[in-house]
Design a protein around this nucleic acid. Structure first.
Lengths: 211, 211
DNA sequence: GTCTATAGTGCGATAGAC
DNA sequence: GTCTATCGCACTATAGAC
């Protein structure tokens, strides 16, 4: 057993390893079927324990009690599974943003958003944090798909009418703080209610800090 | 090429995959030799791009221009390399804490600590963030080695004389916010000076928030 | 829709020449 | 102290029976 799982089998293969990632076309973010959802749920569970790169298809298959071949029936590659899992977690954030946007006022929208973000972080924990902070996933989402659009909507809800570049730091910090704090061993011992309350309170402190 | 690097080779091997990690004895956190330092520097670079699990020994060897066998001369396994790299980054945080602790007053110590943390985050970026947020590394450090002691010292410098459980959330949030914000694509476009200034300012906002 | 069987490749790790 | 060569194994992915 090893630090990355056991005796290791972890990296890229093929002709062009390393920094380049040929993702091909965006693997259809269309809604997963029931069987695909089972794969995604199991994959997120294993990713949370082993990291994305440290997870094999066999582990995912074992987790949900099917064979590797069954995974290939639902998805054409590990890459597609990883992407589908990441997009499924990102969709949860998107749903919270959409709910906040229907609020009557900008102030209420912000409150709904903060509560929703905190709830998501506490409820999803490592399952969301691990996949969305994976360096390869971050690199992919940084310039593909709806990620940038989602972040712009989030920015508009949390920090309305502020387009100065520095306010991007405030947004990045709030996101990192909420999603990262729950992963820290220091927060592991706390009950969820205390965690929720403190996260909401301190998120307000960052967002309300004067310029 | 894949989401985790290329065509994948990523996970645990052997009889007992998954949640258990037998680390054996703590792989001597003694100071690395010059050759070992070269391995660690290269490894951190590749980890930052591919994740810990997504990095093979071949990639590390290529990064520093040696063969795989040369790595095995310096370290006995991939696990030892990963641990040494993580401990080397953690040692940088330890150094900043030690510097802060020599301050004349508690207030000055906190200022030194905040500035040092922010500097570390901006300077090290993904090289520190990726390895210290890897789920397997987090799990290992959570109950081994000097990690808990380091976190207690950090807590005492940043939030003196507050031993309530909720203040752990404040600490976890500050750590996550500072180290995580620099990894976010939103912060990627900003110049380092603006980033530093905003991070210091908002860190104060969290630490100074009334109870 | 799930299976077995297998192809083909790269993995971590070791042995031993230099 | 770095090399070449190699072992045995787990990996992703495919083909095709049921």
């Amino acid at each position: 057993m090893g630090i990355t799982g056991k005796s290791e089998r972890l990296s890229p293969t093929g002709p062009d390893c390393g920094e380049r990632y040929g993702w091909g076309v965006d693997p259809a973010a269309s809604s997963p079927t029931a069987a695909q959802s089972r794969v995604i749920v199991g994959a997120l569970e294993v990713f949370a324990r082993n990291g994305v790169g440290g997870t094999s298809l066999q582990m995912i298959a074992d987790e949900i009690g099917v064979t590797k071949a069954a995974l290939f029936y639902q998805y054409r590659s590990k890459q597609e599974i990883v992407l589908a899992a990441a997009e499924s977690e990102l969709a949860r954030l998107d749903d919270v943003i959409s709910a906040a946007e229907t609020s009557a006022s900008a102030g209420e929208a912000r409150e709904v958003m903060i509560a929703g973000m905190v709830e998501l972080a506490v409820e999803r924990g490592r399952r969301m944090g691990t996949i969305l902070s994976d360096p390869v996933i971050v690199g992919y989402f940084a310039d593909h798909g709806g990620f940038r659009a989602t972040m712009q909507r989030l920015r508009h809800v949390l920090i309305p009418d502020d387009h100065r570049p520095e306010s991007a730091v405030r947004l990045a910090m709030v996101i990192a703080a909420v999603s990262g704090a729950v992963l820290h061993p220091f927060a592991a011992g706390l009950d969820d209610d205390t965690l929720r309350r403190e996260l909401r309170r301190l998120t307000h402190a960052v967002l309300d800090a004067p310029d």
